[in-house]
Simulated assay, not measured.
Amino acid sequence: MKRLWILQQRAAPYLFVLPFLVLFVCFMLVPLCRSVVLSLHKTAGPGTMVFVGFDNFRFLLQDSLFWKAVSNTVTYAVCFLAIQIPASLGLALLLNSPFVRARDFFRYAFFSTHLVGNVFVAVLFMLLLAPRHGLVNRFIGSVTPLGSELNWLGKPDLALPAVILAALWLSVGYGMVYFLAALQAVDRELYEAAEVDGAGRWARFWHITLPGIRPVLVFLTLVGMIGSFQLFELPYVLFQGPGPNNSALTVVMYLFQQGFETGDLGYASAIGWMLVLMVLAVSIAQIRLTRADRDS
């Protein structure tokens, strides 16, 4: 009986970890290994595979559509983060003010847009951006001479701005909640000491607020960059495809087209691994820049 109890004690940790390991191996490790194997083959659906070595990667480097997707994705990521981070921080600063009433209501109102999902937002913005009758075009027509006939979903120059506008509506409140929590964690005594020393609002923001919220700022920038490189549902549903002249084509959308519409799962796997390398490179570069800035 004592031996059985000792055996149970020794085996208990492994038994608790076993369900996770089984799920991880079945749904993460095996698919990852399978995708590596597929990236070295040319396929026509799941049943036909021809070994081609690294030809998929060689063709990928010369594929103009792939680089078009990369260009669109990088442009979207830079523009999105350049607007989303300041907008979220501005809303957080506003709601952190003691003079704002009903802060809980506004906090929930701004964050609630993040709860609906990309597909719902895409359908919603199909209506909001409709020529003449869409609320966005009607507002633009009432305050500018551009009129209310802007074809957001039909002109290549307006495709990415439409996606960015929808993504901002979805995610600004999400970033605001993180920034608000970070602002409330900054020591108030630092502000009081700086005010006694004669520091103005801008000096207090630059030397106290920004260093205090830097970890959250880095986190939101990193997560936003990774999410931007994974963009798929929003433009795909909004334009019912890659948009006019592939102006809304993203890397993940191109992967989907090659894998599930064309049927070349091998080439799609190569695109997926190239995306992994791109995200990894951007993440490492951003972390190193952040560390260098912090050390300096």
Rank of each mutant, 00 (worst) to 15 (best):
M1P: 15
W5N: 10
L7Y: 05
Q8D: 15
A12P: 10
P13F: 02
F24M: 05
M28H: 10
V30S: 12
P31Y: 15
L32I: 09
T48N: 14
T48L: 08
V50K: 15
V52D: 08
R58V: 05
F59S: 14
L61S: 13
Q62T: 13
L65S: 15
F66M: 03
F66Y: 08
N72W: 06
T73R: 00
L81Q: 13
L81H: 14
I83C: 12
I85P: 09
I85C: 04
S88A: 01
L89I: 05
G90I: 01
A92Y: 08
L94K: 07
N96R: 15
R101S: 12
A102L: 11
F105M: 10
F105Y: 12
A109F: 11
A109M: 11
F111K: 04
G117H: 15
V119C: 03
F120W: 11
M126L: 15
L128F: 06
L129H: 06
A130M: 04
A130S: 06
G134A: 13
I140W: 07
S142M: 11
L146P: 07
W152G: 00
G154Q: 13
K155V: 10
P156I: 05
L165E: 08
A166M: 09
A167Q: 01
V177N: 01
V177L: 00
D187E: 06
R188N: 13
E189F: 13
E192S: 05
A193Q: 15
A193M: 07
A203V: 02
H207I: 09
I213K: 00
P215K: 03
V216Y: 02
L217K: 01
F219Y: 03
L231D: 05
P235K: 12
G241W: 04
A248M: 03
V252P: 02
F256C: 04
T262F: 12
D264H: 08
L265N: 07
L265F: 12
S269V: 00
A270P: 00
G272D: 08
M274E: 13
V276P: 14
V276Q: 13
I284D: 04
R294A: 02
